[in-house]
Design a protein around this nucleic acid. Structure first.
Lengths: 336, 336
DNA sequence: TCCGCAGTCTATAACGTTGTAGGAAGAACG
DNA sequence: CGTTCTTCCTACAACGTTATAGACTGCGGA
């Protein structure tokens, strides 16, 4: 059906390799020959067969991106940024959803279906440090997120501790001293929750404010509903607070809603800050102060690092850990 | 480096075709032979090369999904649903972002890079009916969305007119008569905006309520900010209204925010309904009534239809237009 | 005049799989 | 006892590309 390189070669009166050379911008071709080939290409609507190309060259031009789910805005915006960064390099992105489930994450790493891609950007949510060895797969892999540190692969991440400390400092600078946290994970040390809680504690300590466990609200998944529920529970305990640090924006938005229902005014009675700088944070009522964790930078860096590893597979280069720059974004929810 | 089918054949003492047969569950194989092959596969960590498979079989097992941008929640949730539907069929999804730009959409259709996929789910935002002929590409394509009707391909869409009518009826049933619309597109007849506005007018007419152009607020893109701006402009005109129909959820949420800033209570002073049933609509304050347009059904149907076209390429089957079932979701923003 | 050397091109062999055609061995049948 | 039919397996030719090795120009320098 579709024209092959052979058809073009015949139509142009050259060998198939010459056609291949033209298609790949090989330098030493007479302008005249090139012209004839391109005319034939045009005429026959020729377009190289990708499977054959991949088979011969061993590259597919596709990157895999594995995230928990696109319905979580953070990952949707991350995927957006990754696709754009990949496109700038002429690469496509194939997206896998793991649901944040450890078993499915491990299964994905073992799966032969990754054959379709040249490498993988992997953002686990269920796996933890003890699963690090499973990352030693036979192909280029760049780790995203904060579930595993010190693993065998390159790792692009955000400055969770420092950024959370900056968020807390921001609230402290507004004169708030009883700062509640929404979204902590019981006993977690690494992972976004653990690291951000650590940043919170660091900030309190530096400011000489005592840490009060009663102000910490726990949740499982970081969905909006959980932020609301956690806040309801916090209010039910009767503990007094004048600020809330939502460990991500969706939690903060859910919590904000419950605060408003309960009659508290934001930021006057309670100041609120989130983490992620989702698009949505700009349009909530009030607009939500937050941390911009450098998502675009993360996406670009991750794609660049992965592309580098793909180009240079054998390289014994030690795994790198790269952290993006963050930024405190002040909006209405923490206005003075 | 990696083991090939030849290595396995040698290790198992059979021909390569027998290995291939085992890998593809060909029926007539002696249990004993099968066992030996599988042992060799295990031993050598063999996994079939996808590029070679694709080259030989002409199928890649990958579907393309082209959407404007994943940062728009509707498309992120659609992509989520599509990936899940594809996974159920053992297919992968490669996502392209067009930015809703007509030129990029047209370029995508002409691009040879689609070679990587067996077919495309295409959700244009910039193209319109006059571009329909450009959809006649040489490979399986299923159209999504409401920009083009009567084109040369299968089309999976929602019941925009009926659903918008139901949304309006819902407001009317609450005794509202002065219903504003946020998000109309000047002069548009098809497209989500045009169709939903039509549904609104149909409902008014059936109820004997006169159509008042002063109640229609226009926007360009359906981002949150535009909903807010449109509502501000509407309020500035001084027109009186007791309900708002946001042509999608993000517009409704933006409008709701401005209404609240202006001191209006929802739903008491103004009832609000949206369209899309985003996750977010469940957690706004108040929770947002909306239309569930059957997104999951759309994704599943679209993948099924595309898979069918791929399996049966030659089929002269006429293009089908399939509409998903919708549902009015009543929440606080239109409570009695 | 001859050699070497860029520049341009070609023939042919891969890449790793699946499809086609057919062969060997035994069972079923007349 | 031959013939036909299953069942199981094999050899070999594709699929459409890129890589390798080498051939053929003409031209400048020895």
């Amino acid at each position: 059906m579709a024209a092959t390189i052979r058809d073009v070669a015949q139509a142009a009166g050259v060998s198939i390799k010459t056609v291949s050379n033209v298609m790949n911008d090989y330098p030493h071709i007479r302008p005249d020959t090139k012209r004839r080939v391109l005319d034939a290409v045009e005429l026959l609507h020729y377009s190289p067969n990708q499977s054959a190309r991949s088979l011969r060259s061993g590259k597919t031009g596709v990157l895999g991106l594995a995230v928990p789910e696109l319905s979580l805005s953070y990952f949707a915006e991350l995927a957006d940024a990754v696709i754009q960064a990949a496109e700038a390099r002429g690469l496509k992105v194939l997206i896998e959803q793991t649901g944040g489930d450890r078993d499915r994450e491990l299964e994905l790493l073992a799966s032969p279906r990754l054959q379709l891609t040249d490498g993988l950007l992997f953002s686990p949510l269920g796996m933890a440090n003890e699963d690090a060895e499973n990352l030693s797969v036979g192909f280029p892999l760049v780790l995203l997120g904060e579930r595993i540190f010190g693993g065998p692969t390159d790792h692009v991440t955000m400055r969770n501790v420092e950024a959370a400390r900056a968020a807390t400092d921001h609230l402290l600078s507004k004169g708030r001293r009883r700062i509640a946290v929404v979204g902590a994970h019981e006993g977690e040390v690494i992972g976004s929750a653990g690291l951000r809680l650590q940043g919170y504690r660091d900030a309190l300590e530096a400011a000489g404010v005592p840490y009060n466990p009663a102000l910490i609200a726990h949740t499982t998944l970081w969905h909006r509903a959980n932020g609301a529920t956690a806040m309801r529970e916090l209010l039910a305990t009767g503990v007094d607070f004048d600020a809330v640090f939502g460990l991500n924006d969706t939690l903060a938005l859910g919590a904000m809603r419950v605060l408003q229902e309960s009659g508290r005014r934001i930021p006057r009675d309670v100041a609120v800050i989130g983490f992620d700088d989702l698009d949505e944070a700009q349009y909530s009522l009030p607009t939500l102060s937050t941390i911009d964790p450098g998502r675009t930078e993360i996406a670009e860096t991750a794609v660049a690092v992965l592309a580098e590893r793909i180009a240079d597979r054998r390289s014994g280069l030690a795994p790198r850990e790269i952290q993006a720059q963050f930024r405190v974004v002040e909006r209405e929810s923490t206005a003075s």
